[in-house]
Design a protein around this nucleic acid. Structure first.
Lengths: 148, 148
DNA sequence: GGCAAGTAAATTGCACGCAACCTAATTGGC
DNA sequence: GCCAATTAGGTTGCGTGCAATTTACTTGCC
């Protein structure tokens, strides 16, 4: 009995293009964890703060557009960041539907504590700057295509 | 007041290498969803079946090594696949600690139903074969480096 | 001004990921 | 044969992702 005699090669596990990407994303989060534990942050919380370090106040929708996430993910995450004292969640006075997310002093203070993380992570992932840039570009292309 | 005057460029959100990868992985899962809904499978369940289409019986640990996932993720997932009738979970007679996961007839039948999925997905992600291969290679390198 | 349509967040429910822990079976040394 | 160490898998708890729905507010049209 011939195994997989009629299976097209694209249905073979080892030929999957996207699964390595999926696994790599998981591995990245794992690699960040020990570094971010020291700041009491998860990877996603770290990314949210990184946005807020640059633009100290935006609403949930804007944050979601930058991070490609929706309110179902962001609302509980922002509540956790608020509970830790790193962000504030106030209602917009102009439009009461909007929730304005702003960085607190404690949240901004994390920026200097995080100073070494990019370098430390770069060491563990051990990808040259050129390959890193290449990877980033490819992912951004893919994202562009998937944003119909 | 100069914003971010002392922030190193690696702490700027738009300079993150890994976050596009993270977002792309999420986008891939989203892109697969409508296709896999027809088979009553999630992306990860589809990947598990893809492994089982090639090697019709392995234990949880072996499955976890191929997929880079642990029992905390796989056990509930395999129970769901069993509930749908696509796999069987039996105890090894040689070593009672091991749980043997084998594909069922219904599970194997999904392989032909899935025949068009790779092509359909390739259309939506719209990455040339060359760039796809490049992306796969980069992710595999990254995974290799992170598997200390 | 009043009301339908639209919009921003929040909520609910389900499926991952994974650390931390637990249980049961096996192995290795003596 | 006995017991400590190891191993396989399961459980728990928490944090995402996201579809689907709900709630509260705003806008547009008459």
């Amino acid at each position: 009995m011939k195994p997989n005699s009629e299976a097209p090669p694209e249905l073979l596990f080892d030929n999957q293009i996207c699964f390595p990407l999926y696994s790599a994303a998981n591995a990245i989060v794992r690699a960040y964890r020990p570094l971010l534990d020291q700041l009491d942050l998860t990877y996603l919380q770290y990314m949210v703060l990184m946005v807020l370090w640059q633009e100290s106040c935006l609403n949930v929708k804007e944050l979601g557009q930058r991070l490609r996430l929706d309110s179902g993910t962001l609302t509980p995450l922002l509540k956790r960041l608020e509970a830790k004292g790193f962000v504030e969640r106030t209602r917009s006075e102009v439009d009461e539907r909007m929730r304005m997310i702003s960085i607190t002093k404690a949240g901004r203070a994390l920026q200097s504590k995080a100073r070494d993380i990019p370098h430390q992570l770069a060491c563990t992932i051990g990808l040259s700057a050129a390959r890193g840039e290449q990877l980033k570009k490819l992912c951004e292309q893919l994202l562009l295509a998937l944003e119909s």
